[in-house]
Computed example of a mutant assay.
Amino acid sequence: MANTYPQIDLSRGTGPQGHRARMRNRVLTNGANSLADYELLEMLLFLGIPRKDTKPLAKGLISHFGSLIEVFRAPTQSLRAAGLNDDTIRALRLPGVAAERLATAEFHTRPVLGNWEQLLAYLDAAMTGAINGQFRLLYLDNRNRLLADEAAPEQTEQTSTNRQIAIRALALHATALIGFHVRPGKAAKTFSQDARLLDFAMRPLSVTLHDVMIVGEGPPVSLRQEHLL
């Protein structure tokens, strides 16, 4: 006769699996708003760390980076240096992507970025969940309608980065670009040379670099308005 075993109720356990089950039940019963910041981070860490108590790590990350938002915004290298594996880092990128898409939902019907006010409104929404230190590009058509908003390719040399940007611009049939640095922690003038090289690389393709911006650290700064481009 086959042995039968009672079903184990993990929500009553004392180990990591029991704790995780209780957390999940709490979200289903009371909603995610009932979670403290470290608890929300703890649940996200479940996705990349399947069999370990993640509460100490969640609290440590918030203490190290300063807040839950700054954990989400932290560059990949900083998260790796804090001991996170790539699966966990990918899990921590999900809230930012979801928040950005919610914030920019009204812009997803190819918004027109034809003037300063329209550009600032878009950048304000796009900054939700943006990663610190990232350089992003807005690819535009000949009516300044947004074709794509993407992170610049990460290459070791500026010429290689510009080549990849050019390939992407051609694939999208873009006629103009706007670049923006997300909370880079550096003065605008330090990006002048790279911006000029990008501008020069786009000219043979008849792709106009409208501007390169610094955003997220006080009022947005335009390299073109500052005569740095």
Rank of each mutant, 00 (worst) to 15 (best):
E217M: 01
M202N: 01
Q225E: 15
L223R: 11
G218V: 09
V221Q: 14
L198D: 04
M202E: 09
L197N: 14
S222G: 09
V182L: 04
T208N: 05
V221D: 03
V215F: 06
L177F: 00
K189E: 15
A188D: 06
A187N: 14
P204E: 11
E226P: 05
F180Q: 08
P204S: 05
R196Y: 08
P184W: 05
G185F: 08
R203G: 02
T208G: 00
V221A: 09
F191Y: 12
K189Y: 13
V212H: 07
K189N: 14
F200Y: 13
D211V: 08
F180I: 07
M202S: 11
K189C: 12
I178V: 13
K186D: 13
P184L: 00
A201V: 05
Q225G: 15
M202H: 05
V207E: 08
G179Y: 03
G185K: 00
D194C: 04
G185V: 04
I178R: 01
S192R: 07
P204L: 10
R203L: 11
D194F: 06
F180L: 09
E217A: 08
A187S: 12
P204Y: 06
F180A: 11
M213F: 12
G218I: 07
L198P: 00
Q225T: 13
M202A: 09
L205T: 10
A188H: 03
M213P: 04
P220Q: 06
M213A: 10
L198S: 02
A201R: 04
V182H: 03
K186H: 13
R203I: 10
H210W: 07
Q193R: 12
V182N: 08
T190S: 14
A201S: 15
T190F: 01
I178S: 04
A188S: 11
L209Q: 02
G185Y: 02
P219A: 15
R183E: 15
L197P: 03
R203C: 02
M202Y: 10
V212D: 11
S222C: 09
P219I: 10
L197W: 03
T190Y: 03
V215T: 14
G179E: 05
V182E: 06
G216W: 01
P204D: 13
P220A: 07
F200Q: 15
F191G: 05
G218S: 07
K186N: 13
Q193I: 12
R203P: 03
L197V: 11
P220E: 07
L209R: 02
G185W: 00
T208W: 08
V221S: 04
F180K: 07
V207T: 03
G179S: 10
G218H: 00
Q193H: 14
K186I: 06
F180P: 02
V215L: 10
S206Q: 15
Q193V: 13
A195N: 04
A176F: 00
A187I: 07
A188E: 10
Q193K: 13
S192T: 10
K189M: 13
T208H: 06
R183N: 14
E217H: 00
D199G: 00
D211P: 00
M213G: 03
P219Y: 12
D211Y: 03
F200M: 15
L223Y: 05
A188W: 02
V207Q: 04
E217Y: 05
Q193C: 13
G179F: 04
A188C: 06
L223F: 03
M213W: 11
